[in-house]
Simulated scan of single mutants.
Amino acid sequence: MNDIKRIDPRRPFIITADGLKRITLGEIGNGVVLNFMHGGHKEALKPRRTTKPATRSLLVAAHTDRGALDDHARQALAAAALLADDQTEVVLIAFGEFKDDAAALGADRYIALPAFDRRNYAPDEEVRALTACVAAFTPAHIFMPDNATGDGDLGRRYAARADASIATQVVELDAAHVASCAHAGRALASRALPDIVLLATNSVDAKLPFVGAGEAVNAEGIVPASKASAYVDLGVEEMDAAQVALEEADFIVSAGNGVSDIAAFETLAGTLGAAIGASRVAVDDGKFTRDKQIGATGKTVEASVYIAFGISGAVQHLQGIKDCRHVIAVNLDASAPIAKRANLTIVADTQETIKALTDAAAAARAARASGASIVETAHVAEGVAA
């Protein structure tokens, strides 16, 4: 007889500030979001960086992805906030829809420009919008992430148009200077803090000990109306997710030893448009090829969404997904190691969950294609889940 004690996932629980479920002992959980520091003590609210009137500003410009800033953009915003003194405000220009908490990210004021999308190519319009924002706020310096998804290109275009000084791929900075790698990374090239700073990834820690004011600013009257562009946007050519390298995939569904119906799992991946990964155990069993293995002995991935089906979460696998933004685990064992890493854990049968998700996703796509309302789509998905 198995006498190992298991935690009942249906017991009362609380949700931590990181979005993790914690079973409560000896009290009734009500789903309230609580903040914790290491050691279980309640974390004090972060102070405002400054409450003094601003006499100068630092500007941060970045594209959003589905309404949020990615880690690289958050690092650029943190860099500006850390360099700002108590009479300097940090202004964020978000190209795209913006749903993040600007104050928590360190911004004192922000402008959202939902007309722009990183999937649409409109370089002239973006430069005009950035130029207008610079004229409105007259920042001492501009900070942007130096990436290949629009921000790096925008920063270089603006610098050329405005005849501004610029430093790219910055890995070190303070209030007086910046530095970039030189001679294949064997040396650093330094210069005085330029007008535009394009930061390399992971050059700044995005976690801040303070918050900003987070005040929204209406773009009307600042950003000019759009003009006809000299560029023709042919759109984004969709690629089969199965052909995308796991290291570059933004959405991954991964199978472990708990997945028995591989065909159903692959059908779900195709329906969701996700790349396929696997645990070492599933690969060793011959269910997947070695190039699908994720973990310390396989591939390290940085997906925005990673769904693990039937994966217990050995330490080697957790090392491979440490940089994933949102991890969802589907497992019958609520105490599996992967549940500690997951942002959301679904305690349910893997095969039943795969079928329910496949049916719900297919129904939602069919409803969208036929022009059905969101309410009708939600009712279909609800019926499938039930």
Score class of each variant (00 low, 15 high):
9 P>T: 03
110 Y>K: 05
296 A>H: 13
206 A>H: 13
190 S>V: 13
102 A>T: 10
309 F>Q: 09
266 E>I: 11
377 T>Y: 12
267 T>C: 15
199 L>N: 12
296 A>S: 08
301 V>G: 02
173 L>K: 04
253 V>F: 05
189 A>T: 15
145 P>S: 06
37 M>A: 12
368 R>E: 15
253 V>M: 08
256 G>P: 07
295 G>L: 04
215 E>F: 09
175 A>K: 02
174 D>Q: 03
139 P>E: 00
212 G>H: 04
103 A>E: 08
99 K>H: 08
335 S>E: 09
108 D>L: 06
56 R>Q: 08
299 K>E: 05
259 V>P: 05
162 A>E: 13
223 V>G: 00
47 P>H: 04
204 V>N: 09
62 A>G: 07
52 K>V: 00
306 Y>K: 09
32 V>Y: 11
371 G>M: 03
274 A>F: 01
298 G>V: 00
187 A>I: 02
241 A>D: 04
327 V>D: 05
266 E>Q: 06
81 A>K: 00
255 A>H: 03
157 R>C: 15
69 L>A: 05
30 N>Q: 10
139 P>R: 00
253 V>A: 06
339 A>I: 03
7 I>T: 15
122 A>S: 14
262 I>P: 03
75 Q>N: 10
164 A>Y: 14
188 L>K: 06
259 V>R: 00
121 Y>W: 10
193 L>T: 01
336 A>N: 05
233 D>I: 02
249 A>Q: 06
254 S>C: 12
209 P>T: 13
197 V>D: 04
143 F>A: 01
251 F>S: 14
75 Q>Y: 01
172 E>C: 07
375 V>T: 07
9 P>N: 03
218 N>V: 07
257 N>A: 09
120 N>R: 11
147 N>E: 02
298 G>K: 00
314 A>V: 11
51 T>K: 06
232 V>Q: 10
28 I>V: 08
72 H>S: 14
76 A>V: 01
32 V>M: 13
326 H>P: 09
348 A>C: 15
248 E>Q: 11
230 A>V: 06
266 E>D: 11
147 N>S: 05
22 R>M: 05
323 D>W: 07
324 C>T: 03
106 G>I: 00
125 E>F: 06
155 G>H: 02
50 T>C: 08
11 R>P: 06
332 L>N: 15
370 S>P: 14
161 R>L: 13
145 P>M: 03
293 Q>C: 11
119 R>W: 12
19 G>C: 04
333 D>H: 06
242 A>D: 14
304 S>L: 12
12 P>G: 07
